[in-house]
Structure formats: C-alpha cells, structure tokens
C-alpha cells in the first residue's frame, strides 16, 4: 500500500462508511470546487466580454451618428468656441439627472470657457413631456437654463416616486422673470413639438434608453457613473488644451 492511499484512508474514517469521499478517481470535493470555479469564471468572463462589447457598440453607434448628437436646435450653454462639448440627454423628472446637473455645472465652472453643454430632452417618465414643453417654451424668453435649474431644484415637489404631477412644476418657474402666461400659451406650438420629436428620434438612433446619458466630444461614457464622466471630460480637456 502506498503512503498516499494510507493518508486517504485515514481521512476517510470519519464519514459514514456508505459515503466514501472518492468517486471515479477524483475526489468529490475537488470535483465540486472545480465546478464552482468553472461556473464563476464563465460568469465573470461572460460579463466582462458582454460589457466591453456593449461599450464598443455604443462607441461605434455614436461615431456613426455624430452629426445627430447636438443638432442646431438644442439649447447650448457656455463658450461657443469651447473645444470640449458635452451633449446631455436628460429627462427633467429624472432624479439622477437633477443630481448630475450640479456636477456638470461644477465641471464647467472649474474649466471656464473650455466646456460647452448642450441638452437634449428624453421625457421617459409619463407626464414629463409637459415639463419639457415648459422648458422649450421658456427658451423663447431666453430663460431656458434658469428654468431647467429651477425645475431640477424643485423636482421633489412635482415628481414623487417617479410619478410626475406636471401642474405642480409651475410654481418652480415663478420668480425667474418669466411671463408664465406666455409660456403656457406657446408651449403647445408646432415648432416645440417638432424639436421634441427630433430629440426622441435622435435618442432612438443613438441607443439612448436611460437618462442622463452623456457624450463628450462625441464619445459615450464607457460605463455610467459620475467618476466616469469626470474622467472622460478630463481626458478630452487634456487632449484639447495640451
């Protein structure tokens, strides 16, 4: 008897005799551990492969449809000659959009004159298209950015648990110097509807299904996240203003 099998026998004395720990040459334990490792490896490599494929597909899609990103009709903010251009697809009722808006403003303030922001509207929440109409209508009075900031700031009063109460958004626009009667009168104009349709069509073409979605100089975020956005903006700033 080899020394090895002697050792095996010693460890096997503990369990019940009808439950031998060996089966067909490899021990049950190593079979189990190998299976756990194989399954986890398959999952992790599958997940990494899938997400990198997805990021690349998004990049290709954005590169192919670059001219759709910021159409001339989009509201634009900041230095028109800035070499870094952020295009943001947003929904006024989206909480993450409201949170990220402050961070984007801070990025712009930290790099004065170097970043331009354009917004596109994707009202994914039911009822939020009413608020988009209000914002679009405020543009005619040159108050779009003030209105957007106010709507985001008061968001928790007109969006509760992802449910939009469009009428409650009106008080947010008070005190901005807007003629609210005119906003109401003009918000159903045909050109506003056409712009909203254009935004929706471009979002579909670019594969934007969630908000906020950012494109920095035509490049989508590799993965959604504030740090990813800040890193992408830093990278573009570096290559534009070396």
């Amino acid at each position: 008897m080899s020394r090895k099998s002697k050792r095996k026998q010693a460890t096997q004395d503990a369990p019940a005799p009808q439950a031998p720990a060996r089966s067909g040459g490899i021990s049950r334990r190593s079979l189990f551990i190998a299976a756990v490792a194989a399954l986890l490896l398959a999952f992790v490599s599958g997940a990494l492969f899938y997400s990198s494929e997805k990021a690349q597909a998004a990049q290709r899609l954005a590169a192919k449809n670059r001219e759709l990103l910021a159409s001339a009709h989009s509201p634009s903010y900041g230095n028109a000659d800035a070499r870094v251009h952020i295009v943001e697809f947003l929904d006024p009722a989206c909480e993450t959009c409201a949170v990220f808006y402050g961070h984007v403003k801070k990025l712009m303030a930290d790099n004065p004159g170097r970043i331009r922001l354009s917004t596109r509207h994707v009202p994914l929440h039911q009822g939020s298209e009413h608020v988009v109409r209000m914002l679009e209508s405020a543009r005619a009075q040159d108050k779009y950015w003030e209105a957007l900031a106010a709507v985001f700031a008061g968001q928790d009063r007109w969006t509760v648990n992802h449910r939009v109460y469009p009428e409650r958004a009106w008080p947010a626009l008070e005190g901005l110097g807007l003629d609210l009667e005119r906003v109401r009168r003009e918000m159903n104009a045909a050109d506003i509807a056409a712009r909203m349709e254009r935004d929706a069509a471009d979002a579909r073409t670019l594969g934007v299904t969630k908000t906020p979605e950012y494109f920095v100089n035509g490049r989508p975020l590799p993965r959604f996240g504030l740090e990813e956005l800040q890193a992408l903006v830093r990278e573009e700033l570096r290559s534009a203003y070396q």
Binding site: M1, S2, S5, K8, Q9, A19, P20, R22, S23
Partner: peptide, 12 residues
C-alpha cells in the same frame, strides 16, 4: 482497488 478507495455503491 486500494483498500481505502470506494467500491461501487448505490450512494455514488
């Protein structure tokens, strides 16, 4: 078979 190795058993 080595003495410690399993004989075929229904529980296998």
């Amino acid at each position: 078979r080595a003495p410690g190795a399993a004989a075929p058993h229904p529980s296998d």
